[in-house]
Amino acid sequence: MAEAIQIQVNGEQRGCRADATVGDLLRELAIKTERVAVELNLEIMDRKDFDHCSLKQGDRVEILSFIGGGAPMDAQGKGRGFVHAE
């Protein structure tokens, strides 16, 4: 088994195999690649590269997708109630 490395995924520390690719990480997390955007060390990746890009010690990975949203506060899940006119 390959040596383990530490990476950061969506802000959380996580161990992974030293020879793992971004594609391997997504599969391990059971994330379907369609409608997902991946940022590796602040660079947005082309999905074609997921299976060719090996992860390195200390890499920062962000995996994003679409959620319900219209107004900004909704999207952040803060909710701020209603402001009545009178």
């Binding site: 997390l29 059971a30 994330i31 994003l64 997708s65 959620i67 909704d74």
Partner: peptide, 16 residues
């Protein structure tokens, strides 16, 4: 729709 981090700890959550 908004763009946000995927929940990686709870993958059972459905997607919009």
């Amino acid at each position: 729709v908004a763009v946000r981090r995927v929940n990686i700890t709870d993958r059972s959550k459905e997607n919009l």
